[in-house]
Design a binder for these strands. Sequence first.
DNA 1: AATTTAAATGTTATAATATAACACTATGTA
DNA 2: TACATAGTGTTATATTATAACATTTAAATT
Lengths: 127, 127
Amino acid sequence: MQTLSKNQQIIFDLIDKSPEPMKAYAILFNVQKKGIKAPLQVYRALDKLVEIGKIHKIESRNAFIACQNSSCQVSKATAFSICEICEKVTEISSASLSKYLTNFKDKDGMKYSKYNLEFFGLCKKCR
Amino acid sequence: MQTLSKNQQIIFDLIDKSPEPMKAYAILFNVQKKGIKAPLQVYRALDKLVEIGKIHKIESRNAFIACQNSSCQVSKATAFSICEICEKVTEISSASLSKYLTNFKDKDGMKYSKYNLEFFGLCKKCR
DNA sequence: AATTTAAATGTTATAATATAACACTATGTA
DNA sequence: TACATAGTGTTATATTATAACATTTAAATT
């Protein structure tokens, strides 16, 4: 359990309390009152937070979400569901899914220990 | 099998003969001699080609690759392997993988017919 | 405690990716 | 023909992300 630097903590706290994924410039706007003025300050903190698994990037949305999975030390096996109407994103933590994907071998017999999976559909509310 | 418009055909042909995923502005640069001058012309063709399943977007790379899977009418269930060194991207077509993911239910019992999966690792050459 | 090293910060500028808005043209179909 | 739909061309601009460089803080080593 790594201790975060000042900027990392500010930005993590913001993302962690957000009910939905946040985009980099929305984060920037929100932390300007705390003295973080430039995009690069935000991106650097985001990079580090992703690296250590505290947040994940939702690639199809260019947005960031706090890790829901307390055991997630490193972002190497991630799965999300994304509602195509309200854009709600949920991290999926399914042991069988991660086991299946971690053990998946392609037709050359190659395994991949790192992956990112994004499911799309309609959430309960939007159906 | 839909017939493509002029710009769509030019851009599809370029991506289809590229050995690696192409980025939008690399595409633009390559088709300028064919009269496609503006980013928007490229993005519009890309959007349509993705929509009809002729190409896929590699979200983690912001790049586009021709569909390798002749049966792919619509981009709704895609899986790729990505080499973290040489950036080679291969579309995975595994019946068991697509069956597993298409039938996957989250803990609320919800199914998702659409997904995108990106595996990361080292390709044969780079290992 | 002093030294050294790695990590993080602050700042300006700019690169790379993507879309808005509007006018016009081609194509299919009733 | 006339109507609708999809595609094109163009300018401008929004959004996302990184380069380069100087400085500061924190941590590890002596």
